[in-house]
């Protein structure tokens, strides 16, 4: 009688809803094999219920299994990242290791990365990228805010066409125009020497006006009545923009600043074409990439890891800081 009852509970999804009888008194369930309990756990996904005794034990087991599964998955996901960190601390050279933990732990990879600069000059790449990203950040933030404000607040004839064109342009493979961009830059003498960095700034920031969707979505949420009130007080549109809208939009400005700051650190397609063979004007991304070229990989693999760690920590911190806005922006886009 009792057994049948339990089985019914196992087959039909929900014990607590379907049966008014408290389940806590099912002593015999304790004898069930683990296999049955595993099955039970699977069937009980997403249902919370209360009870004590055997049911509590089952629930506990299920919770443990859930956490174990999550832990395994988390290890899988963190493994490459941990591997990089471990590699950066390795004393032994080369790129093929047989152990996860280094045989010899050292910080030499980091110090050599910044001090031995004759062949591959990491500090210089770092400074290059920093300069490029600061300028890119200033220009693209202005571009993105200017376009998204116009699209959100102003009404003019070309508004819809502009938004459609932006959508269509996004469908072209981004680097299809790369060769053409290169020739244009060459035409205005931006492909030699230090001008390469100027070229990079232009490439990274010039078209950012097209990425206005997330910021526009944010501006749309600021009530128009605020603008109207200011307008009645005689403020011009521009004054409203920088006195009211901008201060109210700090989150989205922070988001825009950080994402545009990160772009030069992550891109290696344009950087590779523009920097060419001249390693003095590499950015960090192509510099690290070049460490894995066949002639360097043996000596530089651990330093590649060290460099990656140096770059990845600030980038990851900034990214995690912005991810809230990223998710919000996306769900906003879904609603629209």
């Amino acid at each position: 009688m009792k057994k049948g009852f339990i089985q019914e509970g196992q087959d039909g999804q929900n014990v607590s809803v379907r049966n008014a009888v408290p389940l806590g008194c099912e002593k015999r369930e304790e004898d069930s094999s683990n296999a049955t309990q595993g099955k039970y756990v699977e069937h009980q996904m997403s249902v919370g219920y209360t009870g004590n005794g055997s049911v509590r034990r089952k629930r506990k087991l299920r919770t443990v299994l859930l956490h174990a599964l999550l832990a395994v998955l988390a290890v899988v996901w963190l493994f490459p990242i941990l591997w990089i960190v471990m590699t950066s601390l390795r004393g032994e050279p080369g790129s093929y290791f047989t152990t996860f933990f280094p045989k010899e732990v050292t910080f030499a990879n980091f110090t050599r990365l910044f001090t031995e600069t004759d062949v591959l000059n990491f500090p210089r790449w770092f400074v290059n990228t920093l300069i490029v990203s600061i300028f890119t950040c200033v220009i693209s933030t202005f571009f993105v805010l200017a376009v998204s404000y116009s699209m959100s607040r102003m009404r003019f004839k070309l508004r819809k066409p502009f938004m459609n064109v932006a959508l269509v342009l996004g469908m072209f493979p981004a680097f299809m125009s790369m060769i053409a961009v290169y020739y244009i830059l060459k035409g205005i003498n931006l492909t030699e020497g230090v001008m390469k960095l100027v070229a990079l700034v232009l490439v990274y920031s010039a078209s950012t006006g097209l990425g206005f969707y997330i910021a526009k979505g944010f501006f749309d949420t600021i009530p128009k009545s605020v603008d109207e009130a200011a307008m009645i007080d005689g403020a011009s549109r521009f004054k409203i923009f920088y006195k009211i809208t901008v201060p109210l939009s700090k989150p989205i400005i922070v988001y825009t600043v950080i994402t545009s700051f990160l772009a030069p650190w992550l891109d290696f397609i344009f950087a590779r074409v523009i920097a060419g063979a001249d390693s003095r004007y590499y950015t960090v991304a192509i510099g690290l990439w070049s460490m894995l070229e066949r002639e360097y990989v043996y000596h530089y693999y651990t330093r590649f890891a060290a460099g990656s760690v140096c770059v990845a920590i600030p980038i990851a911190a900034l990214f995690l800081f912005t991810q809230r806005y990223y998710a919000e922006g996306l769900s906003g886009a879904v609603k629209g």
């Binding site: 200017a146 116009s150 790369m178 961009v181 010039a206 006006g209 549109r237 521009f238």
Partner: peptide
Amino acid sequence: FNGRLHRTLLFWPVLGVLVFTILPL
């Protein structure tokens, strides 16, 4: 800077898109 603010705001971004995206495309 008032009723036609969009022209001022959009000038440089649109120029950038024209020169570095549309023209190369």
